[in-house]
Amino acid sequence: MNFDLVSPTTTEDLLRAIDEHRGRRFRFGAGYTDLLLDLEEQQDNELTVINLARLNDPSFTSIVHDGGEMRIGALVTASRIIADRKLQSRYPVLCQAAGQHGSRQIRHTATVGGNLCTASPAGDMACALVALRARCDILPARGDARSLAVSDFFLGVRETDLKEDEVLRRVIIPTDDGEVKTHSDFIKIGKRRSMECAVVSIAYHIESDGDDTMTRAGIAIGSVAPTIKYARSACEYLVGKRLSSLGPSERDEFAAKVVEYASPISDIRASAWYREDVLFNMSKSILENH
């Protein structure tokens, strides 16, 4: 483990640090749950860690509910997401995903921003955020902030759209305050019940009106493709239908639409056929348990 460390406390200092390290190797450190493993391997090469843990800017560190949107700072930990009342009632899927992330110790330090920027196809909070059609708010060292959909943020395994001189500031979930009935969960399948890396994951957030008709559906799948996928046609299939009226053949039809977004591989954790079968079964289960 051999690296330099800078710890900006203001956004101004942070952006300066990014600017100064342009063209050199640097990594952001927030919760360090992934980074530490990489640093362990780090030997002699020049590397700077820009430590975000001391950053004192509410736009990075807080959860704000502001009329039309929920803004979650990149440095917000999984534990804080789990404990946030507003998220619990409005977007429980994010709390459910955060609650299944790593272990309790990991959840106390792992951040939303880290989970997104690691760009693992097995990302937990990332999967929920794709289902919620959240957007990334990105700050460059110089110039104006930009915004893009979380699903577009992921370009491949451990590869994001973040440019060399950019930092992820927060994620934004568009919202409205109408009374809705929410059917949601984060389904995480692995070999054991906790401290797992998903073999298959599904985040779903379905809203229904008083008549039980589905008005909004967001479904994202993880660990079955190089990036987390938003299962658009499966979402569209649900909108306008009544959740309680869907029979076995419709559940199968829906599950088949989800599976279309999967292109799983076989690796040490599971075979491709297993991921695909389980994705189908668990997609079906979404419509069974409500």
């Binding site: 272990s103 070999k191 054991r192 019940r193 906790s194 401290m195 890396c197 040490i268 954790r269």
Partner: peptide, 11 residues
């Protein structure tokens, strides 16, 4: 331990 799975407390 990431890929060699011993039971966790929840199991």
């Amino acid at each position: 331990f990431h890929n060699y799975k011993i039971p966790s407390a929840c199991d």
